[in-house]
Nucleic acid binder design. Sequence first.
RNA 1: AGGACUAUAGCUCAGUUGGUUAGAGCGCUACCUUGACAUGGUAGAGGUCCCCAGUUCGAAUCUGGGUAGUCCUACCA
Length: 921
Amino acid sequence: MDKTFQPATIETRWYQEWEDSGYFAPQGGDRAYSIMIPPPNVTGSLHMGHGFQEAIMDALIRYHRMLGYNTLWQVGTDHAGIATQMVVERQLEAEGIDRHDLGREKFVEKVWEWKEQSGGTITRQLRRLGSSLDWSRERFTMDPGLSLAVQEVFIRLYREGLIYRGQRLVNWDPVLHTAISDLEVLSQEEKGHLWHFHYPLAGGEGHLTVATTRPETMLGDTAVAVHPEDERYAHLIGRTVSLPLCDREIPVIADDYVDREFGTGCVKITPAHDFNDYEMGKRHGLPMINILDDNAAINANAPAPYRGLDRFEARQRIVADLESMGLLEKVEDHTLKVPRGDRSGVVIEPYLTNQWYVDARELAKPAIAAVEDGDIRFVPKQWENTYFAWMRDIQDWCISRQLWWGHRIPAWYDDDGNFYVGESEAAVREEHGLGDETSLRQDEDVLDTWFSSALWTFSTLGWPEETEELATFHPSSVLVTGFDIIFFWVARMIMMTLHFRREVPFHTVYVHGLVRDGEGQKMSKSKGNVIDPIDLIDGIDLEGLIAKRTAGMMQPQLAEKIEGSTRRQFPEGINAYGTDALRFTYYSLASTGRDIKFDIGRIEGYRNFCNKIWNAARYVLMNCENEDCGSEGEALQLSLADRWIESKLQETCADVARAVENYRFDLASQALYEFIWNEYCDWYLELSKPVLWDENASVEEKRGTRRTLITVLETWLRLLHPFMPFITEEVWQTVAPLAGKSGPTIMLQPYPLARDKAVDNAANADIEWLKGVIVGIRNIRGEMGIPPGKKLTVLLGNGDARDKMRLEQNAPFLEKLAKLAAIKWLGEGEEAPVAATALVGELEILVPMAGLIDKDAELARLSREVEKLEKDLTRIRGKLGNASFVDKAPADVVAKEREKMQAQQQALEKLQEQEQRIRQL
RNA sequence: AGGACUAUAGCUCAGUUGGUUAGAGCGCUACCUUGACAUGGUAGAGGUCCCCAGUUCGAAUCUGGGUAGUCCUACCA
């Protein structure tokens, strides 16, 4: 074995082996456990957040697989309609091709080509992370099977009246030329202006003044509204104003939506270009004048001078024209929320179009009940509130998108504007008795990607067929996801699955935090602070990292800034840490918080942990290979240390199981780290040396220690495997035979379960004593500057029978671990030399000072100890002196305090005596 | 505007139903190449648990108020 752990050499080898051997597929068993992967975008690549999520799912999957569950981790990707279409459009653009020139069919072909080409990135990354996904069942939302499910769902919902077509205001992206859902619009505060315009009264006697942030929409105004109780304008209600620049008169209406305090208290109403105005327009039966085209340029409904102008050009023109007419009263600076498309980043226009909608209100009812009734639970529970808040105020879901890439809507139109929904044109003709004389054309639009994602848990298992997989693995066990898509995906999956399966999609939703960079910033391409998890595994040099972060940017002008910050943050690039270290880092960060700051320092610590594991195994193998390890059941004698480490192992098994059940991977990783490093390596391996290296130790003793070394190691390798799959497999292969275990892989070995009976309290207490004595001596050594190599003679005084027994049984351990020449037991009445002292309970550890210890240094050390004790004692005395504490606190708490006080007092006296003696020297 | 979450060591974070000497990792200081490991070992320093009030014998923990930060939802043209 190498002296240091080299992850690169083993990881891909083992993954290949596992995959080729079919270990990732369900293995049978009475109880099923399944997780459906949140499908990543097929043309994207995994970022740190994905890596985190996959690591958690893989730990759950490996854990349950080892527990003997029939385990399925369903893999797949989604087609990411808008994102993918944009990427391909940009590629074509670079070649000077417009997709409209290419035509729909050819364009979609290009997208499939791109999908084939780039789709491997994600799956490669997933494999590098060690994800034990069942690749044989890989699915894609545009697969024939899943597409069939999408069509089926659409048709059935339509027939049930839960999908309808309607003309509504939608969020229109004028660059992507599609409607998008409310969730895809991000509103952010931006600086803008509030323009005050005069609208002349129709009678010619004066004007009223409206305030607006979007002057261009005035071309579509069909009313001015005031508050019904606003005395300033009461006399104007029912009259008309003449709309400047347009040859129209519009009414002044009263509506209590108007806020009297804002602006002038008069609101121009543009029902076709504003959501609130739209509602008001409907209330008052106002005409709706659409003044924009698909590009958000002014259309032919507007006065001639403005036609064809872009909306922002039109704005400038209109303001200028009104000003020249003397109708501009003033312009104020104003901060407003500007809606932008989450993909395109352009300002979204409310726009009147025909779209398809899902009646979400109806579907939401059972979905709310499922969480209320506990059929689905969120972890952490607080997310249920978020879910409820959104679901109880849910809006109908606009599902049509004016794209070419996606599931085409199964609806056909005739020339008279009738439409028919069905599985094909033939089916529609048949059903509605439409002959060849009627020409039909299919709806041009496709469905929102989330529409197909919402079916993910059951469409991947073969629905609408009632497959065996559906029966076995649905509902799935748990959904692992980030809170950012609770609305987008989680809620919609619950609605759709309950409707079509009459069962929940999953029993638990584990909501994890979002991975951020070291400064707490969200990782994003445009900020240039993303880290590819693979770069943490394999490492990357500085120039490579910069190149990666600045490639293919939407805003190339940011490249310089990104290069600078990258150079500052990673002057040496990124080291290679290996998959196991990366995964363990993820687990250690997976607490209940919402933000996960990824600190590069942590991963280095866990890389070192891997190395520790590696070397611990080396030590064990060096001492056990070709040696008698008692694997045939020969007689063996266990030392105190053997019994203790076995006991600690059981406690660790219990801790890990509890942590995983509660989705506290941070606690699981901590328990493992603590046990492996601080107990097994720091103490147990050291305690094994006095036995193995003692020529006088019996065969049974050596055998007992070897047996314990190897079996405890073998057990914790299995315990650790779901978290660090590679190193555990590599080490287990050589360790297992020595422990009498066999099998082709650790991944299919049984997971260690805690045996309560194996917890050995006596051994725990004895080892605590042993540690106490050793640490006491080391402490004196350290603080007195006694060279570590210098062997000491130590005296033990004031001990009781138990101390004596412990000493007798453990003297060799003490001598080895504390580097002692000799230990002398001080009988009652025996005079002790002047010595530096440490206490373990009442037992005094004495390190004679002659020639070793500086008087002043020891006095200083003692006075520090004394001070600490005195401070503590004052606190306890105060507590016990308080009558109400003694009266009201539970008896055992009081007793505990009393005991503590006594012990502290005794210790204090001892140290003070000691101080006296030394001072008199 | 409404709501949620967070505040503990220099940094990143644990801290179960109130009773601990408030912990870990990283970083820091000193010493050490001892026969698994310098990606290591040993010892050590470092905290007004954001502030104020309350409940309680007792509060990092519970309640109320405040401050700071993050986020979500809805928005005033």
